[in-house]
Amino acid sequence: MTRISVTVDGVESTDEVEPRTLLVQYLREARGRTGTPVGCDTSNCGACTVLVDGRAVKSCALLAVQADGREVTTVQGLSNGALHPVQRAFHERHALQCGYCTPGMIMAAVDLLRETPDPTEQEVREGLEGNLCRCTGYQNIVAAVRDAAAELRGAS
C-alpha cells in the first residue's frame, strides 16, 4: 500500500492505496465520486475525464499514486451551486441523451475552452476527439461548447 494525499473537488484526503489502483477507481471507490464513470479499458472513450491540476486527463490512464499531491476536479466539483456555463449549455442545447459520456465530455470541453476560448466548429470537434458519445451524433455537443465559449468570453 502507498500513502497518497489528493485534493478532490476541493477536499484533501490522505489514503492508503494499492499502487495498481487507477485514479478513477480511487475517485469512485475511496472518495465516493461516482459521477465520473468508466466506459472502456483502453483509454479511448474519455468518459472518465477529470482535471488534474487544471488539465484534462483520462482518470483510467493514471494511477492514483500518480495523482499524489495533486488537485483533481471532477464533474461533481465543477459548479458551486450554480451550473458551470458548459453544463448549462449542454442542457440548453440537448447535448446529452443517456448522459454516460457527459461528465467526461464536459470536463474535456472545459479544458478545451481554457486553451481555446473561441473555437471554430472544427476545433471543437478535434478538441473532443478523445471523448466518445454513442447517442448524440455530437452536433449538439459542438453547439453547446461553442455557446459556452461565448458565454465564458462574455464573462471574462
Binding site: V75, H91, L96
Partner: peptide, 21 residues
C-alpha cells in the same frame, strides 16, 4: 422543452448500476 432528465446527468449525481455500493 429542455429535458428534465439533464440536471443530475450534467452534475454527476447519477445512479449508474455500477455506482451502487
Amino acid at each position: 422543452r429542455r429535458r428534465k432528465e439533464d440536471a443530475h446527468l450534467i452534475t454527476g449525481q447519477t445512479t449508474w448500476t455500477d455506482n451502487i455500493q
